Amino acid sequence: KRYRAVYDYSAADEDEVSFQDGDTIVNVQQIDDGWMYGTVERTGDTGMLPANYVEAI
């Protein structure tokens, strides 16, 4: 699945990823209600991200 960031996010922990509004997130997997795991296409960084900061595309 592919998602697009709708807000900027700065990683708060080493297992999270930072991204900017408009970034595409690929290979996304749902972890639980609030978190997903995926790769930021622009940077190649992979990690956890907050589900409410992205939307499906």
Rank of each mutant, 00 (worst) to 15 (best):
V40D: 00
G47V: 01
E55G: 05
Y7G: 13
G34K: 15
A56D: 10
D13M: 13
E55C: 09
G34Q: 15
Y53E: 03
V40C: 03
V26Y: 09
D45V: 10
G47S: 01
M36K: 04
P50F: 05
Y37L: 12
G34H: 15
F19G: 00
S10H: 13
F19A: 01
G38M: 00
Q29I: 15
V40F: 00
I25S: 05
A5Y: 00
R4T: 09
V40Q: 03
L49G: 01
A12C: 12
E16N: 05
G38I: 03
D23Y: 03
V17R: 01
F19P: 00
N27R: 09
D15M: 13
Q30D: 09
I31P: 03
F19N: 00
Y3A: 03
Q30F: 14
Y9S: 00
F19Y: 00
A5S: 04
D23T: 01
P50G: 03
E41A: 08
A12K: 15
T46C: 09
L49C: 04
G38K: 01
Y37E: 05
A11N: 04
R4K: 11
D21R: 15
T43G: 02
Y9T: 01
D33T: 10
V6I: 15
R2I: 13
G38E: 02
A56H: 10
T39D: 02
I25L: 10
Y37C: 08
M36W: 10
L49Y: 11
A5T: 04
V40R: 00
R2V: 14
D15Q: 13
D33A: 12
S18H: 03
T24P: 04
Q20A: 08
S18W: 02
D8I: 07
D33W: 09
S18T: 08
D33Y: 09
E55W: 07
A51C: 09
R42F: 03
V28L: 07
R2H: 10
I31V: 10
A12R: 15
T24L: 14
T39Y: 05
R42G: 04
W35Q: 04
D21L: 15
W35P: 02
D33H: 11
Y53A: 14
D33K: 11
I57G: 05
M48L: 14
E55T: 12
N27P: 03
A56Q: 12
D8V: 06
Y9M: 02
G22H: 04
Y9L: 03
S10T: 14
T46L: 04
V28T: 08
D21C: 15
Y3D: 03
R4I: 11
T43H: 03
V54D: 00
D13V: 10
Q29W: 13
L49T: 02
E41V: 10
V28K: 02
A51P: 05
Y37S: 07
D32T: 13
G44A: 05
V17C: 06
N27T: 05
M36E: 00
V17Y: 03
T46G: 04
G34I: 15
D15P: 06
A5Q: 03
N27K: 08
D45L: 13
R42A: 06
M36V: 10
V26Q: 06
G22W: 04
D21S: 15
I25R: 00
V28S: 05
D23V: 03
N27E: 08
S10W: 12
G44D: 05
V40M: 03
G22V: 02
F19H: 01
M36R: 03
S18P: 02
Q30H: 13
T46P: 03
D21F: 15
Y7K: 15
V6T: 09
V17H: 01
V28D: 01
E16A: 07
Q30N: 10
D13E: 12
W35T: 06
G47P: 01
I57D: 08
T24Q: 08
Q29L: 13
D23W: 07
W35V: 06
Q29F: 14
I31W: 09
V6F: 08
A11D: 02
E16W: 06
D13A: 14
D23K: 02
G22T: 05
R2Y: 11
T39H: 04
V6R: 12
E16R: 06
A51T: 10
I31E: 05
G47Q: 03
V28G: 06
F19M: 06
N27W: 08
Y37F: 12
G22N: 06
V6P: 01
G38Q: 03
Q30T: 11
E16V: 05
G47C: 02
Q20H: 11
D32C: 13
F19L: 06
G22C: 05
Q30V: 13
G34F: 15
D45W: 07
A11W: 04
T46Y: 08
T43S: 07
M48V: 08
V40E: 01
R4S: 07
Y3I: 02
V17K: 01
E14H: 11
M48C: 09
R42T: 05
S18N: 06
R4M: 09
R2C: 12
Q30S: 11
Y37I: 11
M48P: 01
Y53F: 11
E14P: 12
Q20Y: 12
G34W: 14
T39R: 07
M36F: 13
Y53V: 07
T43V: 02
G44L: 05
T43F: 02
A11C: 06
A5G: 06
Q20C: 13
G47I: 02
D32S: 15
V26I: 14
N52P: 09
A5R: 00
Q30W: 15
S18D: 06
Q30G: 07
D32E: 11
D23M: 01
R4L: 09
A11G: 08
E14T: 11
I31R: 10
D8A: 14
G22L: 03
I57M: 10
L49I: 14
L49F: 15
D15S: 15
I31G: 08
N27I: 13
S18M: 01
D33P: 09
Q30A: 11
Q30L: 13
V26S: 08
V26T: 11
G34C: 15
T46V: 10
V28R: 02
M48R: 15
I57K: 05
A51H: 06
E16F: 08
T39A: 03
D8H: 09
D32K: 14
Y7W: 11
E41S: 07
D8Q: 09
M48K: 15
N52R: 14
E41N: 04
V17D: 00
V17L: 06
D13I: 09
W35K: 06
I57S: 06
A12M: 14
R42L: 04
Y9I: 02
V26L: 10
V6W: 06
N27H: 09
T39C: 08
T43D: 03
D23P: 00
D13C: 14
I57V: 10
D45E: 14
T43C: 03
Q20T: 09
D45F: 09
I57F: 10
Y9D: 00
M48I: 12
D23C: 03
Y53K: 08
Q29V: 15
I31M: 11
M48A: 06
W35L: 05
Q30C: 13
G34E: 15
V26W: 07
Y3M: 06
Q20W: 10
N52M: 12
A51S: 13
E55K: 12
Y7M: 15
R2W: 09
R4C: 09
D15C: 15
Y9V: 01
T24S: 09
Y3L: 04
Y37D: 03
Q29C: 14
Q30Y: 14
D13Q: 13
W35M: 07
A51D: 06
T46N: 06
N27F: 10
Y37Q: 06
D8E: 10
Q29N: 08
S10R: 11
E55M: 12
V54C: 05
F19V: 04
R2E: 10
Y3V: 06
D23H: 01
V40G: 01
K1W: 10
I25G: 01
D32V: 12
W35D: 00
Y3W: 09
G44T: 04
P50A: 04
E55Q: 12
N27C: 13
F19R: 00
A51K: 09
I31T: 06
T24D: 07
G44R: 06
Y37M: 10
I25H: 01
I25K: 00
G22M: 04
F19Q: 00
E14C: 11
E55Y: 09
V28Q: 02
Q20S: 09
R2S: 12
A56L: 15
